[in-house]
Design a protein around this nucleic acid. Structure first.
Lengths: 235, 235
DNA sequence: ACAAAAGTGTTAAGTCTACACCCATGA
DNA sequence: TCATGGGTGTAGACTTAACACTTTTGT
């Protein structure tokens, strides 16, 4: 017996949504597609599953190629399977999203792909159903970050509370009271204050913090009620 | 140009996790697998994607075959792609979970599949990675039901508040104070009281309610903070 | 009349929100 | 010295949690 008989075999793709934060706004990494169809158009970084690797392995492989980075936060988003999603051939694509520290991103590696960071508000049209993927990823990130501390993945190893607040404000496109924000974020016990200050943003300087990794894993589930109005969150 | 060259083509399966509630406990519908490998073992209901259908269409087709039902609550859970998950051939499977009113389930249709409902606590060992699928689905249901009113999908068109409470208690394996429970559930505005009572559970009888579908869609997002301790919920 | 489940209200504790002033520093 | 962003506390509103007794009715 060598396999299932009479069943269709289908090309299995992966698409990677890479998000970063530049201190101002949430950005997504896009490439200029290097092959047909839709060659030369802006696109998510993707690839195809090989016979001997899982989709997680395929995504990590592709992300390593594109960004030079390993071991980043990576989560399966959804599998897109409309029979007409790819005009060239019936293809199923599983989308993954990654949250990376934009500073670790290795610029030289992407020369081949002509990769560029785009603020989400000024993103070009994408090919196939990738627009839908981006919207779903944003919903997922907003939903999840309201309950879990995933946004730390977008920051460097040390960061200030005002930076963290800007990140939350940019993800939720809202303004948060800084007194309430710092009270809550400190109350989680996830942050450890450092001696040094970041003087780049102000004359007085803001203290650096880093994540208490022990508490991070322990409290990953318990980081609730962070956002003023967790309405507008989606399934 | 007729397709991608040099890319692997892989069998794409779907697996359906069908949940129901019998008034006592949450149950899952399993079948005796009718083909190799693992023929005769207890398994999730599954199938293969045809070239011309999406995975959602495939799932609905398979669920219709198994249960006779259409249009049930169906959500994509996760895509499982370990290269060794199926010993016969490399197969990728996307799991979907369905929540159905167990009373609508059409018994005659499953004769071919030897389907049976199992309380989750007394579930037999499943084949391949299906055990993992069930665990992930349970986590997802608990997570989502803490924030959204999906558990109504498991109840008949009319139900009583004590029945609803039993359902929540069984999903979360916990006890909830009935005064607080009814206050909260009524405060959502999702329930409409009916004139009649269900006399089956007690001598006095409990009023029937049904879901206000208008509010249901409007408030699907806003049904928050339902469960005493939304700790133990998973990503 | 009694057993068994349904139904209902209050109070205290805790959490959340709104809000304004002083601090430190570089230019 | 002044302009800029950093840092902090409180009071009122609201929400949540804990808790017990009365009602209905079939047997």
């Amino acid at each position: 017996m060598t396999g299932y008989t009479n069943e269709a075999r289908i090309v299995q793709a992966i698409d990677c949504l890479v998000f970063g934060f530049d201190g101002e706004t949430l950005k997504i990494l896009l490439i200029k597609r290097g092959f047909q169809p839709e060659q030369g158009k802006w696109s998510l970084m993707g690839g195809f599953a090989k016979l001997t690797e899982s989709l997680e392995q395929a995504s990590n492989r592709v992300l390593k190629q594109l960004t030079g980075l390993d071991g980043m936060y990576l989560e399966q988003l959804h599998t897109f399977s409309d029979p007409n999603r790819d005009p060239l051939e019936r293809t199923i694509s599983t989308a993954y999203f990654a949250l990376i520290d934009i500073n670790k991103y290795q610029q030289q590696l992407n020369a081949d792909y002509h990769a560029e960071w785009f603020p989400l508000k000024r993103m070009p049209k994408l090919i196939f159903d990738q627009q839908e993927m981006v919207e779903m990823a944003l919903k997922r990130i907003r939903y999840k970050a309201a309950l879990h501390p995933i946004l730390f993945e977008l920051l460097p190893g040390r960061f200030t509370i005002p930076q963290l607040q800007t990140l939350y404000e940019s993800v939720y496109n809202t303004k948060i009271d800084k007194r309430n924000f710092s009270k809550r974020v400190l109350a989680t016990g996830l942050l450890i204050k450092q001696g040094e200050k970041d003087k780049s943003g102000s004359k007085r300087g803001a203290f650096y913090y880093h994540v208490n990794m022990q508490n991070y894993y322990a409290k990953f589930q318990a980081f609730l009620n962070f956002i003023p109005n967790p309405t507008n969150l989606i399934s």
